[in-house]
């Protein structure tokens, strides 16, 4: 396609892409940018202070010493594999 002059119609064709991202992705990207901006502004206004509520949440660190929860998950997985093997092999 050849564009002759910088008329409004041509510019529109030139600038308009064939495909657009889905609206959900646009909102997701905007959300991430807004979150980052908020964090930055908070750290400027209240330097050195923890975030309210969010900073009080215990994340993975609270799982220290709780390996048995994960071991239980592994045992369930092993049992699923073993039971599948045994029941399928002995199925009539």
């Amino acid at each position: 396609m050849v564009f002759l002059a910088d008329s409004v119609t041509d510019i529109d064709v030139f600038l308009q892409a064939n495909a657009e991202p889905k609206s959900s992705w646009v909102f997701l990207a905007l959300g991430i940018i807004v979150a980052l901006l908020s964090l930055t502004i908070y750290s400027i206004i209240f330097p050195g202070q923890n975030l309210p509520v969010i900073s009080d949440l215990e994340t993975f660190a609270s799982l220290k010493g709780q390996v048995w929860i994960f071991v239980l998950g592994m045992l369930v997985g092993a049992l699923m594999i073993l039971s599948t093997l045994l029941t399928e092999v002995t199925r009539e």
Partner: peptide, 27 residues
């Protein structure tokens, strides 16, 4: 701590993979 908890996802993934391989032989 975060690294080890995240790595647990691999345990779940491999469980799914192994179950798929075993069940595939029959189903």
């Amino acid at each position: 701590v975060i690294g080890s908890v995240l790595f647990y996802g691999a345990v779940v993934a491999v469980t799914l993979h192994t179950l798929n391989i075993v069940r595939g032989l029959f189903h």
